[in-house]
Simulated assay, not measured.
Amino acid sequence: MPAATSPPPPEQGDITALYHAHRLELVRLAALLTDDRETAEDVVQDAFTAAYQRRGPALAGVDDPLRYLRRSVVNGARSVLRRRRTARMWVPPHLPPAPSPEEDAIRAEEDHRLRAAIDALRPRQREVLVLRYYAGLTEADIARTLGMAQGTVKSTANRALKSLHRMLESPR
């Protein structure tokens, strides 16, 4: 019975032989650094892929390919840990609590009343208020848009707001 022979040592620059000979060792190294086997496998796979893309299948220009791969695995594990730390430190913005259905109903009723009051204004008053508060125009811009004096815009807006106030303050 012939004696079992161990696989030949990987050639200096053969990435396939290095992969078969040292993948498990590198995965164990990455697993110890990242504390996650699946992530460790990804880190090692990324290291081999990057080495192949940068140096080719013969790992041209690399004196010690295994040391080069170990360094890539350690750097990849560090990157994983940095991303984890960053993700853990991120605090989502505080969102105000969602309004209750009752608050939504009240708001919808108030919006309806406001829209009805705006619709009840004279057309010129409605135009001035919409341009001022919805479009965000200045009094000068409104005056140019509507072809009226800036003082007229001011007085029209003032009368319109007083009318709205009276309509909204009246009993329902």
Score class of each variant (00 low, 15 high):
Ala149Gln: 11
Ala160Phe: 05
Gln12Cys: 15
Ile118Ala: 14
His22Tyr: 08
Gln150His: 09
Ile106Leu: 15
Thr5Ala: 05
Ser163Ile: 06
Thr156Leu: 08
Ala87Asn: 04
Val44Ala: 10
Pro123Gly: 06
Gln53Pro: 01
Asp63Gln: 05
Arg172Glu: 12
Val74Ser: 00
Gln150Ser: 05
Arg85Ser: 10
Val62Thr: 01
Arg122Asn: 03
Met148Leu: 14
Gly56Gln: 05
Gly76Ser: 11
Asp35Ala: 04
Ala149Thr: 12
Leu66Ile: 03
Glu139Thr: 05
Leu26Gly: 00
Pro96Trp: 00
Leu66Asp: 00
Thr138Glu: 05
Asp104Arg: 09
Arg124Tyr: 08
Arg144Phe: 06
Ala87Arg: 10
Val73Thr: 05
Leu81Thr: 05
Leu18Asp: 02
Asp141Cys: 12
Pro93Gly: 03
Leu81Arg: 06
Pro65Val: 02
Thr39Ala: 03
Ala30Tyr: 03
Ala135His: 06
Leu66Pro: 00
Gly151Phe: 00
Phe48Glu: 00
Glu127Trp: 13
Val128Met: 04
Ser163Glu: 06
Ala157Glu: 06
Thr138Val: 15
Gly61Ala: 06
Ser79Asn: 14
Leu137Thr: 03
Pro92Lys: 10
Thr34Tyr: 02
Ala4His: 01
Pro99Val: 07
Asp46Arg: 11
Leu66Gly: 00
Thr156Gly: 13
Arg144Pro: 04
Thr39Asn: 02
Ser72Cys: 07
Ala135Lys: 01
Arg126Asn: 04
Glu139Gly: 15
Leu69Trp: 01
Asp14Phe: 02
